[in-house]
Design a binder for these strands. Structure first.
Lengths: 150, 150
DNA sequence: TATTGTTATACTCTATAACTATA
DNA sequence: TATAGTTATAGAGTATAACAATA
């Protein structure tokens, strides 16, 4: 177990560090899910992220999509090309700036995104296994962590 | 199931689902960090993951590495090739099964992995901003979620 | 026969640079 | 001059299939 080796090297972890490492380990299931969903829908992980990033009924400039996906504008051209060829999204011209192209989900894209979202948002077994009281306590702690006003 | 869908569409989520979505949103910073670290060390994200997966002083079959990285054995050949060319890992023959090749970190690989690990394990601001009591409470909840006996 | 890792192939992802059309 | 998106290029990731060595 690499955790034990790391602990011996670094000594005892702070509660914040241990909480973060535990959280990250649990959240890893999300990566496995993106892979499974991508293969099921015959997409690539980057295409799943792009589809999930687009909000139903809203338009987003390609540059914003590039920022969210942590990649260059030039990559987004290809990703959008393939999603558009599948009929899942469409390009629209921006009325305010004709250099800009706005991306939006088609009805088919919205339907596929919704099916993906259901799966992605389902809590993993680790969270389901907690008592209802613990689930609420965890939610409240994470709301505070994100700075929400309870 | 349509109950859950209706709930989600109206914005009302179960505590478990909301906790999971919040946790995932916070854990997203890890992805940005992997990208930043990859570019800083002149590696690709998959190479960072491979390096981080290997525990110092331990050997791992290539097939195990493939399973952890969620990719095919054939991909690991190339990833391992490039990390080996950089002197960060090495292939060893398994004494018990001569089909198997075991991967292990070199001293240089261990040093680089340790520098990466320090950065990856640093809690994000969301967790640092919590009170010490909340940090401990979060840690304890996540330990229970993962099934650790406190 | 089945499995581990490699090779070959084809496609996607990714960054960089050069290009266009706008602003 | 600067910016949004495209195109071209090159290298890396990914799955599938075929293969050699080994079990």
């Amino acid at each position: 177990m690499s955790n034990i080796i790391d602990l011996m090297k670094t000594g005892v972890r702070s509660p914040a560090t241990e909480a973060w490492v535990l959280m990250r380990d649990i959240a890893i299931v999300n990566k496995a899910r993106v892979f499974a969903i991508a293969s099921e829908f015959e997409l690539y992980p980057a295409q799943v992220h792009a589809l999930y990033t687009l909000a139903p009924g809203e338009e987003m400039p390609m540059s914003s999509l590039a920022a969210t996906l942590h990649c260059d504008n030039s990559n987004v051209t290809g990703i959008v090309d393939r999603l558009e060829a599948r009929g899942l999204i469409e390009r629209r011209s921006s009325p305010s700036d004709r250099r800009v192209k706005l991306i939006a989900l088609t009805p088919e894209g919205e339907a596929m995104r919704e099916r993906m979202r259901e799966r992605l948002d389902t809590p993993p077994p680790e969270i389901e296994s907690l008592s209802r009281a613990d689930q609420r306590a965890l939610r409240d702690l994470l709301r505070r962590a994100r700075g929400d006003d309870d």
